[in-house]
């Protein structure tokens, strides 16, 4: 129990540290990109050909305090965050927290469905290949995995749209207004996720099956199925869970191409739009949220590994 509390305590501290660093990095990036921040904001708000755009930019600079020293701007924002005030968007003047939470909601939905699809394919394929690592099925899946991973995900996305939306007309092209809209983007992401996961599951299971403790379990008279489930899969699952955890974390913000293609309003697209329009408060709030999510996912993975293989995990944690 002490170890669990230790992991949680360290994670909370790590989460706060990472969130602080990520928000600072976002702030720095927004200011380091060449160009005038106030002018970029004015151009996003009113259009680049708007008459009197320089006056508007000066007004933005004045109203939003962009002429203050950067340190003052950043510390001011940190002070507000300490009071749980995440500020308002520089573009549309709405509070940033609901905007970020909405994007996170869509990213979470897409991520959960994509991971679900991925596991539906990767688990059976990985187990079958892991049990017969030198079979024909291994060769076929290895080739397919390499093919899937080597082609960019948006190409798969377009292919799925052409097949399922334009030819078969089973699913919509893009949007987010009913549950059917999540299927194509999730399937696109799941393709690459399952290609990686199935390989890791297969390799991990093959290593476990060849281990002395697995052979001992079989020799002491346990059935094949029992040994596979309670010795093979349990021990093989630690690297798999770690890999899926990393995949889950990367789905928050790491699927910009898919979100753009399918017009899915996730946090990746929000991040991209905030960077291009220099919406610094949105960028910082999204940075904090993504930092915290990464740590939360990592902590969950640590705890799951602890449950699955306590000795190995505790040894690693020291």
């Amino acid at each position: 129990m002490k170890k669990v509390v230790g992991i949680l305590g360290k994670s909370i501290l790590r989460g706060l540290g990472i969130a602080f660093c990520v928000s600072g990095l976002c702030f720095a990036v927004a200011h380091l990109i060449p160009g005038d921040v106030a002018l970029e904001i004015a151009m996003t708000r009113y259009g680049e050909s708007d008459v009197g755009i320089i006056d508007r930019a000066d007004r933005v600079r004045e109203e939003e305090g962009l002429s203050l020293p950067l340190a003052v701007q950043y510390l001011d924002w940190i002070g507000k965050v300490a009071r749980l005030d995440f500020g308002i968007s520089l573009i549309d003047k709405t509070p940033t927290l609901p905007v970020v939470l909405r994007a996170l909601k869509f990213s979470a939905l897409l991520g959960v469905v994509a991971l679900g699809f991925s596991l539906c394919v990767a688990l059976p394929v990985g187990i079958v290949v892991g049990l017969r690592p030198r079979g024909k099925f291994y060769l076929v899946t290895a080739m397919l995995s390499s093919l899937i991973v080597s082609i960019p995900s948006f190409v798969w996305g377009i292919s799925l749209i052409v097949l399922f939306a334009l030819k078969l007309k089973w699913l919509p092209v893009a949007g987010f207004l009913s549950p059917t809209y999540v299927i194509l983007p999730a399937a696109t992401i799941a393709l690459t996720l399952s290609a990686t996961s199935s390989r890791i599951i297969a390799v991990s299971l093959a290593e476990t099956i060849n281990s002395p403790y697995y052979a001992f379990a079989r020799h002491k008279g346990l059935s094949e199925l029992w040994t596979l489930f309670f010795h093979g899969l349990r021990n093989a699952s630690v690297p798999v869970v770690t890999c899926i955890g990393m995949q889950a974390a990367s789905l928050f913000g790491g699927t910009i191409a898919i979100e753009t293609l399918f017009n899915w309003p996730g946090v990746g697209l929000l991040f991209l739009n905030a960077v291009t329009s220099r919406d610094i408060p949105v960028l910082q709030t999204a940075g904090i949220a993504m930092g915290l999510i990464c740590v939360a996912v990592n902590t969950t993975v640590d705890l799951l590994c602890l449950v699955l293989k306590p000795t190995a995990r505790l040894e690693r944690l020291g």
Binding site: V162, L166, G175, N263
Partner: peptide
């Protein structure tokens, strides 16, 4: 729909 290719496919699909 900011992505132009997606808009084109939406026109083609009738969405």
């Amino acid at each position: 729909v900011p992505n132009p290719e997606t808009r084109a496919m939406m026109a083609e699909s009738g969405e």
